[in-house]
């Protein structure tokens, strides 16, 4: 397990839309969306069952073991 100087994990594992993914830490929701190429897209993010409002994407950290859901609007009846 890789730790940084303050003893924190350098790589975290999160559940992203049900898939296991790894990211370099620390990482904010906004940075994670950027890495996925989703910046500027109309979407909504839920972290561990709680909505992360767009206004808080830049300051909300993603932690090891988090479950994230990223949803969009699709065609439907």
């Amino acid at each position: 397990m890789l730790l940084d100087l303050s003893g924190r994990l350098k790589v975290i594992t999160v559940s992203l839309n049900g898939e296991t993914r790894q990211f370099d830490s620390p990482i904010m929701v906004a940075q994670l969306l950027d890495q996925l190429g989703l910046t500027g897209k109309r979407l909504a993010v839920e972290r561990n069952g709680e909505i992360v409002p767009k206004s808080q994407h830049a300051e909300t950290a993603v932690e090891n073991g988090d479950a994230l859901e990223i949803v969009v609007a699709v065609g439907g009846g």
Partner: peptide, 10 residues
């Protein structure tokens, strides 16, 4: 118009 809400295709 109605729309559905679904996981984005990562």
């Amino acid at each position: 118009v109605t729309v559905a809400i679904r996981r984005t295709n990562i």
